[in-house]
């Protein structure tokens, strides 16, 4: 017994040393991992913090606004005249401009974007796709102010030749140009979604004697629904949030109308108008832009949630 103890003791000691040595190394590595993890967490936190800060500013400033203006008036008043002596704060007026111009834009962007995506993904020869996709994406890179002027000085005069009664500032031409601007987003994302549909599904369809069009429309598009839905939601968000084209080409007359041939102000163009104007900070007139901004943000949030739900609902497991 005692003999064996004497023999094993030094062995144990050296073993202990080895173990503690290994442990130390592990601890330093662990430390390094923690530092990296913290940095990554910090980076992620910036976006969360920014969002929270924006929400805080919007909500707290809107709170001040709603101290003076009842929510009922804000939602149901049919006039938006915050700068007049007889001030009215009916957001519906601005909302109608936003919805009308967005509807025009989406009527252009969603069908065209989808058709382009189907063509590029399912029909276009390799070379055509390689050449046309960069051009398409270039369309998305044109500054929106350029689109705005394009609408104002090119499209509106053109439309006036067909409809002489069309005002110089109108939601129609702004919306149409906005639609062109959104096409690349819808087309590019939808095409990605369609190309992600596995070849085995297409082969299955062709092997059943389907034509290319049948395969595209009955198999590929349904299989890519979730991606296409996300593309649409992004397009909608872009349309609702678009500012410059509308500020330049749609006029800034608050106008409760769903007729695209009228001029109108949207939530975004109103915010530009006030933010750049010389209204004193802290006045109710100035405060309106926060309430308008909050409305806009709630709308976009709603669309994002809808998009999230659609993605989950229609996610395809191939």
């Amino acid at each position: 017994m005692s003999a064996s103890t004497i023999v094993t003791l030094p062995l144990n000691q050296s073993l202990d040393l080895q173990v503690s040595d290994r442990l130390r190394k592990k601890a330093s590595r662990h430390m390094k991992e923690r530092v990296i993890e913290f940095l990554l967490f910090g980076a992620a936190l910036i976006s969360v913090f920014t969002t929270l800060a924006i929400v805080y500013v919007l909500v707290s400033e809107s709170w001040v606004f709603f101290q003076h203006v009842p929510l009922k008036d804000f939602l149901f008043d049919t006039q938006w005249t915050p700068l007049f002596d007889d001030a009215h704060y009916g957001i519906m007026v601005l909302l109608s401009g936003t919805l009308t111009s967005s509807a025009v834009a989406l009527m252009v962007a969603l069908p065209l974007g989808t058709i382009i995506a189907v063509y590029l993904s399912e029909f276009a020869p390799f070379k055509v796709r390689e050449i046309s996709k960069p051009f398409l994406e270039l369309l998305g890179g044109v500054p929106t102010i350029v689109y705005g002027y394009f609408a104002l000085v090119f499209l509106t005069p053109l439309l006036q030749k067909i409809y002489p009664d069309l005002p110089g500032f109108n939601l129609l031409s702004a919306g149409l140009v906005m639609g062109v601007m959104i096409i690349p987003y819808v087309a590019s994302l939808s095409e990605d979604a369609m190309r992600a549909v596995p070849m085995s599904l297409r082969e299955g369809s062709y092997a059943m004697g389907a034509t290319r069009l049948q395969t595209s429309l009955r198999v590929v598009v349904p299989a890519a629904t979730s991606g296409i839905a996300s593309a649409y939601i992004l397009g909608i968000s872009r349309a609702v949030g678009e500012t410059m084209i509308l500020a330049v080409a749609a006029g800034m007359q608050p106008n409760l109308t769903f007729n695209p041939a009228d001029s109108g102000a949207t939530i975004t163009s109103y915010i530009v108008q006030v933010a750049l104007g010389d209204l004193p900070h802290g006045s109710i007139g100035y405060q309106t832009i926060f309430a308008a901004g909050l409305t806009l943000m709630l709308m976009t949030l709603m669309f994002n949630l809808l998009g999230y739900w659609l993605r989950k609902r229609f996610r395809e497991v191939y």
Partner: peptide
Amino acid sequence: RMRISMVFQKPNPFPKSVFENVAYSLRV
């Protein structure tokens, strides 16, 4: 392909109902 049909290595049902999967080759 209308006369010669095919079954693949990996099952590749379309993203449709059971009924519509089978009806597909008739609908086309």
